[in-house]
Design a protein around this nucleic acid. Structure first.
Lengths: 234, 234
DNA sequence: GAGTGGTCTAGACCACACT
DNA sequence: GTGTGGTCTAGACCACTCC
């Protein structure tokens, strides 16, 4: 059973936002509340989420208005597979390496485990429509995902973690830096040596902010960019 | 006069969050409501904002808990000056160029003006504690900021726009790509030619999503990284 | 002045965690 | 079972925009 505000949010989006030009006025909150047969607070909750998603803006005393289709949606956390599919391409992977090892000081700090604990590390070449896009190395505490190396590692690790191990990723901290591909990396990515590349390191965490996965990805700069919306204040 | 939930949010943060270790339980919502002498809904509004800021998490049936100091704060839109100051350094600028020109097709599209309209373009070398960090080119519709070139351009343009022209920036779309500094750029940044660099293009918009400023910045990769938190779902 | 979104109250019931 | 956070209602007043 969905919450009412959740259904109302989707209804408002379908009826008054999607496909509309910018600065179109929505019905007033009181009108919407009456139309949906709910309290105004419930409508406000729905509108607040749509505002957070960058789909509308509200001006006190004036009304609620559409933002319009030109604006990119705010950044959501998604796996490589999900992201590639969202762009209408087919994701695939080649496993370059998969092993278990002791965490060591660096990984121990990243995953909040002790340095002697066993971790599982998977390195994959990730492709979109068969074209190499990035080299990605993911590390997990082995205790969190026993037997991971025996599974099919060609798809979404996020999906695997959630479905098979009940590990839900809630947020991630990302750091983006510029670099160049070294000899081995450029060979795997199919680009000349010293080609510009984006390095993205990410720590994925569950709802309680416990780190679940740490990954380092090297993206071809000619095929990939990081795009997002930031808000001032709020 | 601040809203109550705003004061309560700050009070809760000071008393129960800042300086606390992770997973510390906060008082219940009903306890907080009574302590502050307000309704539970008001406390919930305050807690919701702290949750959005990544300072606490809530588990239905269990309670509200601190996230702890290790986690970086979620990304906010800020100007170069604000950002450098937040990192405890002193921002400064050298104006490399300031001119007015016709928008042309590309700028016209970025700022939603007609190609023949006059725009103001300012290029600056931006420094932190006297060390070159990036080359930044900002473009505005001249009609929005008449006489801008006669002002002091060494500080925050965001502050100038807000204080002198009443232009409030609400959000921005950013695109981050990897590149290398060409000869002129590397000379200005004080690095060898073909050094890795981050290119960040940004379109800043007012609350109604009208583009106000478009900027292109080239950051030294050895001195700068983009760091942010992304959420899944929500 | 009329109408809008912004804030706040008082109270209720539900879903879930913990014991 | 008890207590927690999650949702929702009914109603009020305030701050602001627009005419």
């Amino acid at each position: 059973m969905n919450a009412k505000y959740s259904d109302i949010r989707d209804s408002i989006r379908l009826r008054f936002i999607d496909g509309k030009p910018a600065d179109e006025a929505l019905p007033t909150e009181r009108t919407l509340a009456e139309a949906f047969g709910v309290n105004r607070a419930t409508v406000r909750r729905a509108l607040a989420e749509l505002e957070d998603d960058g789909l509308l803006y509200r001006i006190q005393g004036a009304g609620t208005f559409t933002i319009g289709p030109a604006v990119a949606k705010s950044l959501k956390l998604s796996s490589f597979s999900e992201e590639v599919r969202r762009r209408g391409m087919q994701p695939s992977s080649v496993v370059l390496g998969a092993l278990t090892r002791r965490a060591g000081t660096q990984t121990a700090r990243q995953l909040h485990v002790s340095p002697g604990e066993e971790v599982t590390e998977i390195t994959r070449l990730r492709m979109a429509d068969g074209e190499p896009m990035c080299i990605e190395t993911s590390v997990f505490a082995s205790a969190n995902a026993p037997g991971l190396l025996e599974r099919d590692l060609s798809g979404s690790l996020y999906a695997l973690l959630e479905q098979d191990y009940g590990l839900r990723i809630a947020r991630a901290e990302q750091v983006v830096t510029a670099t160049v591909a070294d000899e081995a990396e450029s060979r795997q990515l199919g680009v000349p040596v010293l080609t510009p590349a984006l390095r993205i390191t990410r720590t994925s965490m569950d709802p309680r902010s416990r780190p679940i996965e740490h990954s380092t990805s090297l993206y071809r700069a000619d095929r990939y960019e990081v795009r997002f919306t930031v808000r001032r204040d709020g």
